[in-house]
Design a protein around this nucleic acid. Sequence first.
DNA 1: GATTGTGAATTATTTCACAGCT
DNA 2: AGCTGTGAAATAATTCACAATC
Lengths: 222, 222
Amino acid sequence: MPLSPRSISRSTIRRLSGYLRVVEGLERNGVATVSSRELSRRAGTSAPQVRKDLSLFGSFGKRGLGYPVDGLRAALTRILGVDRDWRVALVGAGRIGAALHAYPHFRDRGFRIVTIIDSDPAKIGTRWEGTEIRTVDDLEQILSEESIDMVILAVPAEPAPELARRVARAGVGAVLNFAPARLELPDDVIVNEVNLARELEILSFSLSRRSGDEAAPDREWR
Amino acid sequence: MPLSPRSISRSTIRRLSGYLRVVEGLERNGVATVSSRELSRRAGTSAPQVRKDLSLFGSFGKRGLGYPVDGLRAALTRILGVDRDWRVALVGAGRIGAALHAYPHFRDRGFRIVTIIDSDPAKIGTRWEGTEIRTVDDLEQILSEESIDMVILAVPAEPAPELARRVARAGVGAVLNFAPARLELPDDVIVNEVNLARELEILSFSLSRRSGDEAAPDREWR
DNA sequence: GATTGTGAATTATTTCACAGCT
DNA sequence: AGCTGTGAAATAATTCACAATC
């Protein structure tokens, strides 16, 4: 029963998030307990994997019975740090920014977009659902004054690395980057990347080797 | 020099996509060759990793010199299957759908959104940049008539699993799922999930264990 | 009888280190 | 001398299997 396991892999965190989603669904349906087998089925992994993942953080189940749904939901919420609200700044008020700003599941999870920042003079001063769009010129000041915990960076690739550096310098500890550019930030800033084109490339890769590629000579690639 | 390596991990594919992005940038800057060291630095991985990843598909470099940028770009484009156009259907014309439809990097990569499908009667018949929004009632017929290769599923969680089944039944081989729901599809359909809330949860998890958690007793989670 | 929690075994992935070209 | 390509070694992740518990 490790209190703070030394290091948790990103895959494990992803799965924990999946378990939380499943367990919330079960709770809404009034299910009282769930076995690792059932949970794994619904989360798309294996039962031993579920038990191993959870055991990294404590002992939440009862042998012979399974896991209490409410207790597990509470534990996962706490482990993932979503038992509190987080102050989020949206940097970039383009189309992706707009979609993210309106995304209901962020709010449901306690991710509160409390400020929006953009560089387009036509947008500065306008409001999205009551939240004013402010100028990127004041980036550092806004992030610091608003006690921002995380930044969602939804800007084009070109300005992204420099903006990310400014965000980091303002003391923000975590960045979710939607720009197709690699951010080089100090180790104490957590960066998570979402590259939308890459997700389609994975499909394209897999589809490509489906049919007729068995005999492709590698000479073709010089 | 394996022609069609048996199985390639998802991590490897992700990295290949990263190498392609880097190499395209180098090419635009007129760089002729790149070493595994330089490439790894720019892609955020290690030099042996780059060499291992590439060697899974062939031998693209020259000892003593490095990799020719143009040849490597061509090879990666081919490996990832983005040396051709793909016919993509967007299912779900909400805000996320709108952002994805306008996303320039999809088109740049040959992912052509040739049809848009929604369930909202108010949207059916209207057009986005010339592409008509069609009714989900005709989903199967549209996907088949339009020879759709991939579907981007940008709908709420509730209808997602059933819609995905219909997409699969229509013979589409790949789905990029933005709905926070797990899709259960036959093994011959490739599914890739993007869960936006999860990406913030990863940040939240990491931020949470930054400070003051060393002594948290696990009793608190019962 | 069912199911967890967990060390041990297995499998997968990454890194090392060096022979072989340029 | 510099750098790739790759088997071998090391590390990480997953699965197994079973004692402990309900």
